[in-house]
Simulated scan of single mutants.
Amino acid sequence: MSFYLSISASLFGLYVIINLWAMHSRRLNRPAYVLTEFDSIVGVRHNSLSRLSAGFTTFVVKHHIRRIQVTRECLTLFTDTDECVEIWLCEEYLTSNATHAKGLFPEAEFVRLPA
């Protein structure tokens, strides 16, 4: 039993370390990497672990995004049908990604909420 507990604790610790590294990685949080443009579709890597694997990318149609909302740690894209995609970022990468999102979705309303 303690063998399985120690394996589980080790895997959880490894998960936390990888997540913290990915959250603060300059390469993984580049605006062009977080929001990747493919003609009329944008691939969104919404959290730090999804930036490690392209299989977890969410795709949105550019003209369906009607509002971009920025809070302290989150950049949220709202669609015409009030669905949203939350992109979790550190504060140091939030401004550059918000500026990139404004360029990708020029018709969308931009809202910055106070912290």
Rank of each mutant, 00 (worst) to 15 (best):
W88V: 13
R45C: 04
E91W: 08
I87P: 00
E86G: 08
R72Q: 13
V44Y: 01
T81Y: 13
I18G: 06
F12C: 05
I41A: 01
V16C: 11
F105S: 00
V34E: 01
H24R: 14
L104E: 02
Q69K: 13
V85S: 00
R67D: 03
I17H: 02
T81G: 06
E91I: 03
A22K: 07
S25Q: 07
R112H: 08
V111T: 09
E37R: 15
S50W: 06
P106D: 04
L35E: 05
Y4T: 06
D80R: 15
F38N: 12
G43Q: 09
I68V: 08
I17M: 12
G103V: 00
W88P: 01
F78K: 01
R51Q: 06
V85C: 07
V42W: 06
S25M: 02
E92W: 09
L89H: 07
A54C: 04
S48V: 00
L77Q: 02
S25I: 05
L49D: 02
I17L: 15
T57Q: 14
R66A: 01
E109P: 01
R112F: 04
C90M: 14
F56A: 13
A115T: 04
P106Q: 04
N19S: 15
V85R: 13
E91Q: 14
S53Q: 05
I41Y: 12
R72Y: 11
E109H: 06
I87C: 13
R51F: 01
T71C: 10
H24E: 11
L5G: 11
R67Q: 15
F12K: 01
P31W: 01
G13I: 06
E83P: 03
A115Y: 03
V42M: 05
L52K: 05
V44N: 03
L104H: 06
A115S: 09
E37N: 11
V34D: 04
F12H: 05
L75K: 10
S96A: 15
C84F: 06
R66P: 01
H46F: 14
R30H: 09
S53Y: 11
T81A: 10
Y4L: 15
T71V: 05
L28D: 00
F38I: 05
V42I: 15
R66D: 05
S6Y: 12
L94M: 13
P114A: 04
R66F: 06
P106L: 04
T99P: 00
V70F: 02
F110V: 03
R67L: 10
R27G: 00
R45V: 03
K102G: 01
I17Y: 05
H63K: 14
M23L: 11
E109N: 02
A22N: 04
V70D: 03
V85H: 04
A9R: 12
H64R: 11
A32V: 03
L77D: 03
E86M: 12
A98N: 02
R67N: 04
R67W: 02
A54R: 11
R26N: 08
L35C: 09
R45Y: 00
W88G: 07
R51N: 08
M1E: 11
L49Q: 04
T71H: 07
M23E: 12
G55R: 12
V61G: 01
H100W: 08
I87Y: 08
Y33L: 07
Q69A: 13
S8D: 05
Y4A: 14
N97C: 15
W21D: 01
V34M: 02
A108P: 05
